[in-house]
Design a protein around this nucleic acid. Structure first.
Length: 781
DNA sequence: CAGTGAGCGAGCTTCCGCTTGACTT
């Protein structure tokens, strides 16, 4: 009898399941979605009740063909795609493409790839749930409509024409970054004075140790000084001691989002890197599926973890826990991310290993006992006034899960109070304490930090926007479109005051701290800011943080069969389309203009705005008799924050540094960054040089060096044909115009001897048989 | 490769969510 064919989404899963099911089943993968909306005309018949037009994308043709022929040969076809909205739709598309009847074709689901789960799933097949499929179609169609209606609006209203885009997810992601930036820019720090007293006492071994106690924060320097002066000559007595037990609980096992956050905090990985490494671990069978929103573990896994904890740390450290998902939008088609086996596992690649160890520890910790603490709070009376000081200490009584792992926190979750609380020496009520010194330290309030890739993912997940499979790609998109940049920011030096009470004398000191430094953070570009403002102005509802949550409720109603999907789409489309038409008709071009002042020399207005080639400053108006002067903003500057003085500074380029080898040496900033122009040739300036301050003596060696390096790379030049033979990191190649052609292996050795005829032949040869590439998107008819 | 900055109009781009691999100057 012919084998049954079982189709899953992921090929790695297929392999595992085939082993479990044995002889009767052949298990194949469809590699995710196999059909999508056609691109032309949105792929939707708006007038025909939003009927979708599906096609098999080019890169899926092969898979579909193979599944078709297998389906013919096989006994029964079973659909085992993921149990969520998308998975259900994939099953339905498989029915459509393979000619299966969705009413009778067997559909099974499981949330974990374990023998019992899969064997039990096979005993209770159902059929495709068309309501759920319709909910997915509604989701897909709505996203297509939003993206393909909104993006063209931007093309029309923005002067920059570098394929801009907008969408339900990406545009809100940019908005989050833009708003945080403006909060930071508008933030006015307020200072107060933290009171800290240092006392000495004997510890358990009788040694004198220093510990600190805190007093009430003082709002001003006057108050702080008055307080310290008031403490002159005081006695300090312990009046009360409270000892309270406390505990810490481990975090849930990893989901995609929490894995990305922790890998970012603990290992400094960006989200794409984390996902790439996780994919490798998954494919080599070391971890479970890495795109998941579920925190649950299979029974089999819980048992394995439990026995691992027993053998490694003892039963005292064991505590079985079942975690529940807080997130309502979670679809939980998979397990949490965990090691497939808990016993020792070697991972070759160092980066992969670090991620694997993180996953292993987190998984272990999630099934371990609470850490037990003892918190001590001592009140200390000041004899000269009514204020009290508080000393607190924390002792770890039992480490529990902390033996293995502790989750890190984001900057914005760390408050000033929860610094490291050390141990207090044993104290007794009525004990007199000798004061070493007391200080009032000026502290400033801080704005919320800028987002990292991972903290943006966290925010998106909280808002229910995006899915585990799209977090990393979404961030790539907004970076690629130039709405957002990832970079460091240097902090600025700031003075802060300290008042010190010592030996009955109050002394005033000033110290410096660095504030506002950020590393690898997301900054909005001017483009991102103006596009966000524009979309907010004209498409308020789409840009609303709750838009996705609202339509998700409607998708749910479709999934429950309460409303028809085309009715839902119709209710959305009509008002939306009206907004689109109105915007195209009435909205002004997006400029983001801001006036900076008046140029003293010419008496003309100085403005910052978006130009055709990005943010710029301009002196004068295009309607003036004399042409306006233009200068490009540096990439750390922004239309919103640039000052008049900074703007005027930009007009200092181009600078002529003088004559070298009878030609001018001119420094400027061009399309590809700062450069030196000399003798009709151009030399890029590295980051170590500033075009505004580079000197003649610094510039000339760069010319000489770069010229030499270029000669080094050149094998031969065919002047007349404008063809170059160059040496690159992948071997010698031919350059003609913008295109490169690799030399065949046998010709690489003696590349310098090639004649122009031979070179031309190679070009023709390569053109005729182009090297295999990722299939390019083609216009579907 | 190293200009430009206004507006027109051809012909192009664009979304989100499932999955992996092949390529590089």
């Amino acid at each position: 009898m012919a084998k049954n064919l079982l189709i899953v989404e992921s090929p790695a899963k297929a392999k595992t399941i085939e082993k479990i099911l044995g002889e009767d089943f052949e298990v194949k993968s469809c590699y995710g979605h196999i059909r999508d909306l056609e691109k032309g005309d949105m792929g939707i018949d708006i007038k025909n009740n939003y009927k979708p037009r599906y096609i098999v994308p080019e890169d899926k043709e092969k898979v579909v063909k193979e599944l078709k022929s297998l389906a013919k040969k096989s006994g029964e076809v079973w659909l085992a795609t993921d149990e969520d909205r998308e998975g259900e739709a994939i099953s339905w598309h498989l029915c459509e493409v393979l000619g299966l009847d969705p009413v009778t074709t067997k559909r099974i689901v499981f949330h974990e790839i374990t023998k019992p789960a899969i064997q039990s799933a096979v005993t209770k097949p159902r059929t495709v749930d068309m309501n759920l499929v319709n909910a997915q179609q509604a989701r897909r169609i709505l996203d297509r409509i939003v993206g393909f209606e909104l993006s063209p609006v931007l093309w029309r209203k923005m002067s920059m024409k570098n394929n801009l885009s907008a969408g339900r997810v990406q545009s809100v992601a940019v908005r989050i970054i833009a708003e945080r930036e403006r909060e930071i820019n508008a933030f006015v720090p307020v200072s107060s004075f933290k009171i800290e007293a240092l006392f000495t006492a004997k510890d358990v071994s009788g040694k004198q140790v220093t510990f600190s106690a805190e007093g009430k924060k003082q709002a001003s320097v006057e108050n702080a000084e008055a307080f310290l002066t008031g403490c002159k000559g005081a006695d300090y007595t312990v009046t009360d001691i409270q000892v309270k037990p406390g505990k810490k609980t481990p975090a849930a096992p990893f989901t995609t989002s929490t894995l990305q956050q922790e890998a970012s905090r603990k290992l400094g990985y960006g989200v794409s890197r984390t996902m790439l490494l996780a994919q490798k671990l998954y494919e080599s069978g070391k971890i479970t599926y890495m795109r998941t929103d579920s925190v649950s573990l299979s029974e089999t896994a819980m048992d394995a973890i439990s026995s691992q904890i027993s053998s490694q740390y003892g039963d005292r450290y064991k505590q079985s826990r079942k975690f529940k998902n807080k997130n309502e939008s979670a679809q939980e088609a998979h397990e949490a991310i965990r090691p497939t086996y808990m016993d020792a596992m070697t991972v070759e690649d160092a980066d992969c290993r670090r991620l694997y160890e993180l996953i292993w520890k987190r998984t272990m910790a999630s099934q371990m006992a609470d850490a037990e603490l003892e918190k001590t709070i001592a009140k200390i009376q000041i004899s000269t006034n009514k204020e009290e000081l508080t000393a607190s200490g924390e002792v770890l009584k039992f480490d529990g899960f902390l033996k293995v792992y502790m989750e890190d926190r984001d900057e914005d979750e760390i408050s000033e109070e929860d610094g490291q609380e050390g141990m207090l020496p044993p104290l007794a009520v009525q004990q007199k304490l000798p004061l070493k010194e007391m200080r009032a330290v000026e502290r400033f309030t801080r704005p919320l930090p800028r987002y990292t890739e991972a903290s943006l993912v966290k925010k998106l997940e909280e808002l229910g926007i995006g899915r585990p499979s799209t977090y990393a790609p979404t961030i790539s998109t907004i970076l690629k479109r130039g709405y957002v940049e990832k970079r460091d920011k240097e902090g600025i030096k700031r003075d802060f005051r300290i008042l010190l009470l010592k030996n009955n004398n109050v002394e005033k000191l000033v110290e410096q701290e660095n504030t506002g430094a950020e590393k690898s953070k997301l900054f909005p570009t001017d483009l991102g800011l103006v596009v966000t403002d524009f979309l907010k102005q004209y498409f308020d509802d789409i840009m609303d943080y709750n838009f996705t949550a609202r339509i998700e409720e409607e998708f749910d109603e479709v999934a429950q069969g309460k409303i028809l999907w085309n009715k839902m789409i119709d209710d959305f489309y009509n008002p939306f389309k009206k907004d689109v038409d109105n915007t195209i008709e009435n909205a002004e071009r997006i400029k983001g203009e801001r006036e900076l002042g008046v140029d003293a020399a010419s008496g003309k207005k100085v403005i910052a705005r978006m130009g055709r080639y990005g943010p710029m400053v301009q002196i004068g108006d295009v309607n003036d008799e004399e042409k306006p002067r233009f200068a490009k903003l540096k990439n750390t500057q922004s239309i919103e924050t640039i000052s008049y003085d900074e703007a005027m500074e930009l007009f200092r380029l181009p600078r002529n540094l003088g004559q070298f080898e009878d030609s001018d040496v001119v420094v400027n900033i061009g399309r590809f960054g700062p450069y030196i122009a000399h003798d009709k040739k151009f030399y890029s300036l590295g980051k170590e040089y500033d075009p505004y301050s580079i000197t003649f003596d610094e510039a000339t060696p760069i010319i000489v060096e770069k010229r030499a390096a270029k000669e080094e790379r050149t094998i031969k030049i065919f002047e007349k044909e404008k063809i170059q033979l160059l040496r690159g990191p992948y071997g010698p190649y031919i350059k003609q115009g913008l295109r490169n052609y690799k030399l065949p292996k046998e010709k690489q050795e003696n590349a310098a001897d090639l004649s122009i005829e031979e070179v031309k032949a190679i070009i023709e040869e390569v053109k005729a048989n182009p090297p295999k590439r990722v299939p390019r998107k083609k216009k579907s008819s």
